[in-house]
């Protein structure tokens, strides 16, 4: 049962990384980061159930803190996406490194 969570967590993390790189739309990228985070939380749950007897409460506290961080980061990312969309008209990142990019104040 524990290894199910462990392997499931690793798969979710991997899927998240893949989507973060492969998808272009910024909302999808932010969702991908959230999937990665869920993967990490599942590994922590596996760690909590790993020992004998009652589950270890420490990973639960870590997951709760992690969720708080993930929610704030997601909210911030979504707000930033809205600003990017408002200014550039697109919710995608421009391709390439672009030393010639204009801008700055």
């Amino acid at each position: 049962m524990t290894s199910l969570y462990l392997i499931g967590g690793a798969i979710l993390f991997g899927l998240g990384v893949h989507a973060l790189v492969a998808r272009a739309h910024l909302v999808l990228k932010v969702l991908a980061v959230n999937v990665m985070g869920s993967g990490v939380f599942m590994v922590l749950l596996a760690a909590a159930a790993g020992g004998e007897g009652d589950p270890d409460p420490v990973p639960h506290a870590l997951v709760l803190t992690g969720i708080v961080v993930a929610v704030s980061a997601t909210a911030f990312a979504l707000a930033l996406i809205l600003r990017v969309k408002a200014v550039t008209g697109r919710a995608h990142l421009p391709e390439g490194e672009g030393d010639a990019e204009s801008g700055g104040s």
Partner: peptide, 12 residues
Amino acid sequence: AGGAAALTAAMR
């Protein structure tokens, strides 16, 4: 900074 360049850089 607020411009298009700064916002996309921040997003990345």
